[in-house]
């Protein structure tokens, strides 16, 4: 019963954010950057549900308009790590020779390096911006995916039904396509949902540190960074964007894990 309710809530949250991301203009008409110097630091009210910032900009408008870049960066990062990491993991798990072993060692080594630091290192090379953040985070969480996929492949590969298929004379390619991949897909998709949550948080963290997209498309992380200096006067500027991050991550995690494991690593 409780499970159904929370899953329903998560679906509603995701639907709202999808609308915000696709047609922000419908929810918050007008330019999100419009300043109103007569109305700075207004606390939340009906006119400004999330209040206004130091330049009198409506925080709610800015949050709605920041949805797309906040979520897209995470999605892109997850997609990159899912595809690349999945491939690496599959190769690691399936190859019994030195290649699989060596690749697994490299992956283990990269795993030991915290994702956020890896992303920062990559950004130091490729520079900031949404696309680079997605790339950096995608590469940074590639090892985690590779390791998960490898583990799952090894687990499935050791199942007697694989021996049964080999013994029955089923081709190697058919075993991989018909037995291995379908049996690892579930766990990997569930993990992808969790990784999406982690990536959204990490992307906003990088924006917060100042590596995010340029101002007009400011995402939630940059909004929080912008409101940081006035936090003693106007808590709402930082509070609401952060709440949005948490809501979207909670919803996505809820939908992907269905009550199972939470995020695998603490997001920064």
């Amino acid at each position: 019963m409780i499970r159904r309710v929370t899953i329903g809530l998560a679906l509603v949250v995701v639907a709202v954010f999808v609308v915000w991301a696709i047609v922000p203009g419908m929810i918050a008409p007008g330019e999100p950057g419009t300043t109103d110097l007569l109305n700075t630091f207004a606390s939340p009210s009906w006119a400004h549900p999330f209040g206004t910032d130091d330049l009198g900009r409506d925080v709610f408008d800015r949050v709605v308009h920041g949805t797309r870049s906040s979520i897209l960066v995470g999605l892109g990062a997850t997609l990159i790590s899912l595809l690349l990491g999945g491939t690496v993991g599959l190769v690691c798990g399936l190859s019994r020779g030195w290649l699989g072993q060596a690749l697994a060692r490299v992956v283990d080594m990269l795993m030991s390096f915290p994702g956020l630091l890896m992303a920062l290192t990559i950004i130091s090379v490729v520079g900031s911006g949404s696309r680079n953040i997605a790339l950096a985070l995608g590469v940074a969480s590639l090892p985690a995916f590779a390791r998960l996929v490898r583990g799952e492949v090894l687990r499935v590969r050791d199942q007697p039904f694989i021996d049964a298929a080999v013994g029955a004379g089923v081709r190697r390619s058919a075993i991989v396509i018909r037995h291995v991949i379908p049996n690892v897909a579930g766990a990997i998709l569930a993990f992808a949902g969790i990784a999406l949550g982690i990536d959204i948080i990490a992307a906003s963290s990088l924006s917060f540190l100042g590596f995010g997209p340029a101002l007009p498309a400011a995402d939630w992380g940059s909004l929080i960074a912008g409101g940081r200096d006035s936090v003693s006067d106007a808590w709402w500027i930082t509070f609401f964007p952060g709440l949005m991050v948490a809501l979207v991550v909670l919803a996505v995690t809820r939908l992907s894990s269905r009550g199972g494991a939470g995020p695998l690593e603490p997001a920064a």
Partner: peptide, 12 residues
């Protein structure tokens, strides 16, 4: 609690 960004928790 993992869903809340660390920097935001810090600010709050």
């Amino acid at each position: 609690s993992l869903a809340f960004p660390g920097y935001w928790v810090g600010i709050v």
